[in-house]
Design a protein around this nucleic acid. Structure first.
Lengths: 238, 238
DNA sequence: AACCTAAGCGGAAAGCTATTCCGGAACTAT
DNA sequence: ATAGTTCCGGAATAGCTTTCCGCTTAGGTT
């Protein structure tokens, strides 16, 4: 039961938040250097043989195939379809990504990180309220154009239940900062958490998918207006 | 292969809208007239033998079982679970409800109709904006407390794709009237369609399910505030 | 260059669920 | 009671996911 998942996507302490170190995407040669190439006086007797070259190649093929298939068939496309396109057996796919959410995370990590990274720049160049709106727009665009991603975020499927937590952990801090700033400047109400918005936006992006992202954008815009409404009541009394 | 689906829930012309004639709920003797009820000059010699008593009994058992299972396991519980609880074989379930959406429709028809029926009373006793809000609250409560219903409304599952259309057709007219009135009185913006709201509310109710309806209520409230914001800009210029 | 070893591979097998099919049981009218 | 249907139940079929395991082969060793 309590095994250790997290295959390709290693674990992160908590969150680099708005920092610049986005957690190496589908990182390959990255920090995945377990066996110390030449440890000074490191434990000698453990040379796990490294990782084989073909294994890395297959992993890359899988990521590329998954990216393509996710676009054409959505994130819940049959595993076989992805494996076939990658030219490997399903066994290989499952060894690299025991949970489907691992694959989804790996495929979108780059884009999620880009969203996160955009936060600081927005706060620096815009008023808090504008920064928040622009960021949400970007996030909405991301979710709404990834067939099935938004739905996957609250599908209930056990193989995907790690996704919401992942998103929360990843973009939570950034969004939190934007929200706090906007609330502090009085541009939006203060009783909204990052979690609220993340879930709400995901919900509003889900129905769409094949309807065009236009619907999602409009609805999210309404929601954001709602946040403003709470902060600036049209009839300030006494 | 183009058979005729729509088992228990026969088809409706269009929509009694806010009318009082809600389309007989788990209606039995109702419009379940398969081969021409009594065509004027239709083939006379056809006394369809009525419907067998045990068949009706099984159908009732199924509806009751489904209602119970939907609460405990959500609307996407295994068909077998429902059939077992009803004490019938799965074949029987599928004969009565060829599409899963047929079963879902039949189970919730009563409540959906109640929502629809509440529309006129609300408009009669409240200001347009209030009536709209109250109605949406009620609708939200309904969706948010039916495990999996909101998700089912845009799951993409082919067996459920008839649901959104059904809801749209059923509650669309009522919501449309409420929206029009509220827009006419200047309480909300005018560029929102019943479809928009129905889908958006469903989306906002979906993530929740097992989180309590509180989240859904809050988010929907934000959305409604957003509609007001558009109609009553906080800083009327010019 | 030949050899060894275990990392890694592929696809068959096992497990689920949905959906269809059909022989036979049960009901209704006569 | 009998005939004629309607219905039932569950076995059979089909599509997926996920696991397992013998064979292949990369890559270090001699």
């Amino acid at each position: 039961m309590t095994e250790d998942p997290t295959p390709a996507a290693a674990e992160q302490p908590h969150g680099p938040a708005a920092s610049t170190g986005p957690t190496d995407p589908a990182d390959s040669t990255g920090p995945t250097d377990p066996t110390a190439p030449a440890g000074p006086g490191a434990v000698p007797e453990s040379a796990p043989r490294r990782q084989r070259a073909d294994a890395r190649r297959n992993l890359d093929s899988l990521l590329e195939a998954a990216k393509a298939v996710f676009i054409t068939s959505g994130v819940d496309a049959p595993a076989k379809e992805i494996a076939d396109l990658a030219g490997v057996g399903v066994g290989t796919l499952y060894r690299h990504f025991p949970q489907r959410s691992d694959l989804v995370k790996a495929v979108f990590q780059r884009e999620v990180d880009a969203c996160v990274a955009a936060g600081p720049a927005l706060s620096a160049n815009h008023a808090p309220g504008t920064a928040l709106t622009e960021w949400i727009d970007r996030y909405t665009e991301f979710l709404a154009t990834k067939r099935g991603l938004a739905t996957a975020l609250h599908s209930g499927d056990p193989a995907l239940e790690a996704l919401p937590a992942y998103f929360m952990e990843r973009v939570g801090p950034t969004l939190g900062a934007l929200l706090d700033a906007a609330a502090a400047s009085g541009e939006i109400r203060a009783d909204v958490t990052p979690r609220d918005l993340l879930l709400a936006v995901a919900g509003l992006c889900a129905p769409v998918d094949h309807e065009g992202a236009a619907f999602s954008r409009r609805m999210v815009a309404f929601l954001m207006d709602g946040l403003r409404y709470g902060a600036v009541p049209p009839e300030p009394r006494g």
